[in-house]
Amino acid sequence: MPIKIPDDLPARSTLEAEGVMVMRETDAIRQDIRPLRVGLLNLMPNKIRTETQIARLIGATPLQVELSLIRIGSHVARNTSNDHMSSFYRSWDDIRSERFDGFIITGAPIERLPFEEVTYWGELCDVFDWTQTNVHRCFNICWGAQAAVHHFHGVPKHDLAEKAFGVFRHRNLAPASPYLRGFSDDFSIPVSRWTEIRREDLPRDAGITVLAESDDAGLCLLDDPRHRSLHMFNHLEYDRTSLAEEYQRDAATGDAIQVPKNYFPKDDPTREPENRWRSHAHLLIGNWINEIYQTTPFDIEAIGAD
Rank of each mutant, 00 (worst) to 15 (best):
P6W: 05
S86A: 07
F298W: 09
P269F: 04
D32C: 11
S192W: 13
G19W: 06
N290F: 08
P269K: 06
V76R: 13
D215I: 04
G218I: 13
G144A: 05
R181Y: 13
Y293H: 13
Q258P: 03
D186E: 15
H235E: 05
K163T: 06
F183R: 08
D299N: 11
F115C: 04
D93E: 14
E117F: 08
R226D: 07
N46D: 15
Q53M: 12
L41V: 06
A28W: 12
T119S: 14
S68N: 07
F115P: 07
E196C: 14
T209I: 12
D8M: 11
F165Y: 11
Q64L: 15
L222D: 03
I95P: 00
F187I: 08
E18Q: 14
G102H: 02
E25F: 09
S74F: 02
G207P: 07
R249I: 02
A251E: 11
V20N: 00
R37D: 12
T295C: 01
I292K: 01
T52Q: 10
V127T: 02
L113P: 04
Y238V: 06
V167I: 13
P10C: 09
A302H: 06
D215Q: 12
R34T: 14
H84T: 10
R276H: 05
N46G: 04
M232E: 14
I29G: 00
L284K: 05
D306I: 10
A212H: 13
N290Y: 08
V135T: 03
R181E: 14
G154C: 09
P35K: 12
R193I: 11
Q248V: 02
L236E: 02
E111G: 04
R171Y: 10
A251R: 15
S81C: 09
R90K: 15
R78F: 06
R193T: 08
I208Q: 01
L219E: 10
F168D: 06
G59V: 09
Q146K: 08
Q31N: 06
W277H: 05
V149H: 00
D205M: 03
R171N: 11
K163V: 03
H75V: 09
P109C: 05
Q53H: 11
T26I: 14
P225D: 03
F128L: 05
G218M: 11
R137I: 00
S74W: 01
P225W: 04
L283I: 12
E301S: 11
T26P: 03
P203Q: 05
Q31D: 04
F88P: 01
D186A: 09
V191S: 14
A164K: 14
I189C: 15
A108T: 02
P203T: 06
P156C: 08
L15R: 02
L57G: 08
H282C: 01
A17C: 07
D32Y: 12
H136P: 00
Q132P: 00
E111I: 03
V20Y: 03
L43Q: 08
T296Y: 01
